[in-house]
Design a protein around this nucleic acid. Structure first.
Lengths: 167, 167
DNA sequence: CTGATGTTTCAAAATATATTGAAACTTATT
DNA sequence: AATAAGTTTCAATATATTTTGAAACATCAG
């Protein structure tokens, strides 16, 4: 396996894993490319490497910047913009977990808390509904605050967690 | 908010959260319905409640059974089949995490380990590629085995983890 | 075995999502 | 101010995924 084969394999695997987790393929591929490339890349270089259009590249770069994992670099004396990603895997995981919590888990928790306040009316249906949505609310809240506390610790949060859990 | 409003809100919220995580909407809605309903349901009842076709219901039930979170019940003297889900949220989370690990994370780890074995050829590109994919391989392996060990413990795995992490 | 009841499959249709490409826009340089 | 270099937007298009519905299949009761 040479460099170019390995690179393609990694970029494609990343892209297809992403779709299984609800993230668009191109966004994951751009990220993968920046992740393994030593220095920043211009839009042109990414278009060429991934065979995608300018519009697609631009929109996905913007999303990656919104997530806080890709950054823009401007070089004096050069009109082009260059992009690079967070290279530290722990920091990357941290940012992604914190964002998913903020964007998806927390809104879900709000809805769970809301629906689980349904007034008991004596029927088996409402009793079950309240019991189950309350249980889901508690599980989700616990998991979410666990994730957020883990993620707010220092760089070695994952290693620390492993040590605490298995000693 | 009455029962039927709360029920719809929960089912729809669950469905849209699922799509953000790469799970199909109908599958999540069927699961949500079974999760809040006191007893098992027939295919007809689910079709009626969720306004979906027989084929769609059947295929998604099969997938839920493949995941190990929905089960079929046959009643003697009744030709219909009835379906019910795992009701314990901790057990549910456990099954889902273990399955995602098996189906998605483990295959990814294999690819990471493979591409990170690329032979160093002195260029900055291969050096960076190897460094980064190795780091990703290690992070993913650590996280995956942490998940698997947590999940293999007793019913209170989440509570136990919280206690260990934050005392 | 036959009819009745129920389930599964799968090609076609519908829907949702991602991508393109060209025009509009922005900013820097002369 | 005009031009050049580059970026962003968005309607149209392409692609991928989900859903339908009807036919094929299975199983039970008489």
């Amino acid at each position: 396996m040479n460099y170019s084969e390995a690179k393609n394999k990694f970029i494609n695997a990343w892209g297809s894993l992403a779709t299984q987790w609800g993230i668009n393929r191109t966004m994951a591929q751009i990220h993968a490319l920046l992740f393994i490339t030593p220095g920043p890349l211009s839009v042109e270089e990414m278009m060429e490497e991934l065979q995608i259009s300018r519009g697609n590249t631009s929109m996905n770069l913007r999303q990656l910047m919104d997530w806080g994992i890709v950054f823009k670099e401007i070089r004096s004396g050069d009109r082009k913009e260059y992009f690079y990603t967070e290279k530290d895997v722990h920091e990357l995981a941290r940012i992604i977990m914190a964002e998913r919590s903020r964007r998806e888990i927390q809104p879900t928790i709000r809805i769970l808390s809301e629906v689980s306040e349904l007034k008991e009316d004596g029927t088996a249906e409402t009793r079950e509904f309240i019991k189950q949505t309350k249980a889901m609310f508690e599980l989700t809240s616990t998991a979410d605050s666990m994730i957020n506390r883990m993620v707010k610790q220092n760089k070695n949060w994952l290693t620390n967690a492993v040590i605490k859990l298995f000693t």
